[in-house]
Amino acid sequence: MNEKHTISCLVENHFGVLARISGLISARGFNIDSLTVSATEDPTVSRMTIVVDADAVKLEQVKNQLNRLIDVIEVQELKEGQFLDRELLLARVQVNSKGRGAVEELLKRFGGRIADANDHWVAVEATGGTKQLDQLIEQLRPYGITKLVRTGRVALEK
C-alpha cells in the first residue's frame, strides 16, 4: 500500500548533488511529493527533506539506494509523531477590501496573516503542518484562490 513518507538526508553541499538525488528517485519510478534543500548549522552540509509516495518495500529500496550515493552522508526516515514539520504557503485570494475581514479572521485561526493587498486581492501567508495548510486552503477556496505556492515540508526530529 502506498503511503507518504518523509525522508531526511544530510548531503554534501556542492553542485550536482540535487541532480544525483532527484535522478536516482525518478529512475526508480517514485513520485516525489516535495523536496526541499536548505542550509544547516554546518556550511559544508545541506539538509534535504523528501516526501515520497511509496509502499514499504519500495521505500526501503529508496533508502538503500540513497545510502549508496557517495554525496549522501546520512539518511533517516522520519516516522509519524517523531518529528516537527512545517511548510510555508503563499496564496492570492480574490477579495476586495469589503471581504477582507472574513479572510483575516480565518487566517487568525490558522496563525497566518495578510502579507500584501490591493483593491482586487490579498496575498496570504501561513506556516504550519501539511494537513493544517490543506485545511486552510479548503476554507480559502470559496473566496477564490487565483495563485498558490507551497514550499514543501521541512522537518526536524523531535
Binding site: G16, I70, D71
Partner: peptide, 14 residues
C-alpha cells in the same frame, strides 16, 4: 558528461 553518465556511474567528479 557528468550529467549523461550519472545514472551509470558509481560516482563522478568535475
Amino acid at each position: 558528461t557528468v550529467g549523461v553518465t550519472r545514472p551509470v556511474t558509481k560516482h563522478s567528479y568535475l
